[in-house]
Amino acid sequence: MGVALRDLAADCRETVDLDALSGIAAIDAHNALYQFLSIIRQPDGTPLMSADGQITSHLTGLLFRTANLVEKGLRPVYVFDGTPPTFKQETIDQRREVRTRAGNAWKEALRVGDIAEAYKQASASARVDASIIGTAQELLTLLGIPWVQAPSEGEAQAAYMARKGSVRFAVSQDYDSLLFGSPVLVRNLTVSGRRKMRGRTITVSPERIVLDAFLDCLGITREGLVEIGILVGTDYHPGIKGVGGKTALKLVRGGEFESVIAERLPEFDPAPIKEFFLNPPVSDDYHLAWSPPDTAGVIEMLSGRFDFSPERVEGALEKFSVKARQKTLDQWF
């Protein structure tokens, strides 16, 4: 879910072409995998699967989207979540319940023949489990694409890598990356293109938000942005009911954050959450290196074990060619 800052970001973001983006991109892996699992499905909501019933939607998305990014001149690195903070457990439990209900609703929609509703509920039932993560990491390794294991939240690690200069920007659908301090956030990168939504086809384009410009646009500091997040709700606390982004911005600008919290949520201490956003657990234990794909290994995995068309796999692998990698150092950074 992330923090709800869409309204505040409306006038502080820019739409960019994928061709205009270059350099190293730290991608929130779990965020991307959920997107692939939610979107890449049959019309009735059934995920793509191998002949023996193994889900392959995430592998399809990972292969073809990564190939497209590399061909466009980007060097992706995927950052995986580690251990979540204890105060996220309630959100995790709620999400699990939502997915379970959606899964049951999907089955009911299939039973009565409501295909549109079935697809909607199936998308909401997507789960990223150990098998999904393991096969995703295996494929990335075979593709020669680095991945990083974060000690805690992947978005926090990606933001740290961007601040450190290891990557040019962080990639996620959630605005939390900005609260974690990423200098640049790019949204929609892993889902850009033509998409079906609510019965109609739309074009989804990447969006870029520069943190300093965003803060200037709102007239606040990063700490103030974190306070807005706490007021409207984050993955770590639901916030204050009825307080949206614009109201929260007004309260923070007026220096009323602490008094409003004391009045509306007297039992809640926001300090641990604020500290987590401003100084999250991160690691320097990573090495970013790209190599040519292990073509035979990728084909053996995807075609041999997961029943992918060898021709489609080979076509995707062509995008990882040396020609696609021939960028100057300045273009990468």
Rank of each mutant, 00 (worst) to 15 (best):
M1L: 13
M1S: 15
A4F: 08
R6T: 10
A10P: 04
C12N: 13
C12F: 02
A20L: 11
G23D: 12
Q35C: 05
L37R: 10
P47D: 05
S50H: 05
D52F: 12
L59T: 04
L62Q: 00
T66W: 05
T66A: 07
T66H: 07
T66Y: 09
L69Q: 07
V70W: 12
K72P: 07
K72G: 08
V79H: 09
T86C: 01
T91H: 11
T91C: 10
T91A: 11
I92V: 14
Q94A: 15
V98H: 11
N104S: 09
G113T: 00
E117R: 14
A118I: 12
A122N: 09
S123M: 11
R127G: 05
D129E: 09
I132F: 00
L143I: 10
I145F: 09
W147Y: 15
Q149W: 06
E153H: 09
Q157D: 03
A158N: 04
A170P: 03
S172D: 02
Y175I: 04
L178I: 06
V184E: 13
R187Y: 07
G193D: 03
T201L: 15
T203D: 10
T203A: 11
V204E: 04
E207Q: 15
R208C: 08
V210R: 14
D212Q: 10
L215G: 05
I220H: 09
T221Q: 10
R222N: 10
E223K: 14
T234S: 08
D235S: 08
H237I: 11
I240F: 06
K241R: 15
G244I: 04
K246N: 12
P266W: 13
L278H: 03
D284Q: 11
L288H: 11
D294W: 11
E300Q: 15
M301Y: 13
L302N: 00
F306E: 01
F308K: 00
E318A: 15
A324W: 03
T328P: 02
D330P: 00
D330Q: 14
W332H: 06
